[in-house]
Design a protein around this nucleic acid. Structure first.
Lengths: 126, 126, 126, 126
DNA sequence: GTGGTCTAGACCACT
DNA sequence: GTGGTCTAGACCACG
């Protein structure tokens, strides 16, 4: 049971997260070419405009780079990529803590919550 | 730091979270009367319709109960309230973990992130 | 499970129905004195104004009669009481059928629904 | 006839019932797109906010699903739709029986009432 | 163009 | 005075 809640994140955000995750995990490496907007749109079953936005925002974050007429590439600037990982962690942690505190949870409870959730799932690799 | 940033949650959601937090923390106890729609609207500086929605949704979640012509009250059914706390923790933790994993973080890193963030802030009591 | 829905009827309506039912079933007979407004308010745990309204509306329906300084009585006029039973049945049936049809149910299904519901409950006397 | 009479249900409820009826009767099938909020507002002559509410509540009931920027659709999850029909019947029957019993009617009388009411109307096909 | 949020303000039903 | 419904109309986020 439970209530329900927590509306889905916007698709473009989900895709940014996914791509960022792949870059962070080195599934996509500096200099790699990303799929073309159309390709990726088809691959993900999403409107091309949405992919456009994904690439545009990632470019603003400087984690990808568009080369005229050639496509979009994972940025070569390695420093940016390193900080990216920490930046994103920071951001998500902050938002989470802010929400949880508003609900009256202590940091200790949050950590315990993570541990419990983690333990409830066997096949995890970390 | 980063570029990206999370847009604010809708006001009515923020208020639900705030009230839920107050109930969870026993600042508002079972049977307590909540401020009237109009009162709370003034108090929070938002429109009465928005408060209406807050109360309506909380009623659907069964954490609040409205008595015709009398007002809105924290539900007496204590079991619901206890599970509420866990439900909400569960929900937020899950969403957080899901996001973080997509970004390639391990549970250990998430916990470390929480601890670091917590340590960076003095005046905390937990 | 299921959804939820069907908000409670207003209290004064519930009380009218209850009293009407008692009169229909001859639990309260023509000429019987009803409890005073205050008495009945205490007995039912309801605001005296609400009881006021109950008696007022029942008077308009001519099923009770107020005698100045003496109280409220079940009407002596027997004809009214006989038709009352049919009137109310008629009214409720109509409303029910109207709702059910809007939802796409046939009369046959409604009847079957009643029968099934009835069968699901042992301790019934009819 | 009587004096009493039931006040209209709120518009948004009527519209929910109507749409639910259409879905139950397969006039609208799983996957079908509902009219846009604004379209349906015009079509029904009510305010767009009211339609919003209709769609929102139907979504909570899981009989409808909204896809960001694309519209609102009859849920594909057929199981939900099947149970919906029974759920709604159940709910309405229960409420009706509860009311009628309070008024002192037996199941047999209720059924007879339905039959009579049905017979009084010619052009019915069921 | 789609749904979603919010406002300001009217009006109603119930207690 | 309490909650509840509805409107008209603005503005935003998403695809």
């Amino acid at each position: 049971m439970g209530v329900d809640f927590q509306p889905d994140k916007p698709i473009y955000q989900q895709l940014i997260d996914r791509l960022a995750g792949e870059i962070i995990r080195s599934i996509r490496k500096p200099g790699d070419k990303l799929p073309s907007v159309r390709e990726y749109a088809v691959e993900t079953g999403v409107n091309a405009n949405t992919i456009q936005r994904v690439y545009r925002e990632m470019e603003q974050m400087e984690i990808v780079q568009t080369k005229r007429g050639q496509g979009t590439f994972v940025t070569e600037e390695n420093a940016r990529l390193v900080s990216l990982r920490e930046d994103m962690k920071q951001q998500y942690v902050e938002a989470f803590v802010k929400d949880m505190r508003e609900l009256g949870f202590t940091t200790t409870e949050m950590i315990r919550g993570l541990e419990e959730y983690h333990d409830e799932q066997e096949d995890r690799d970390d």
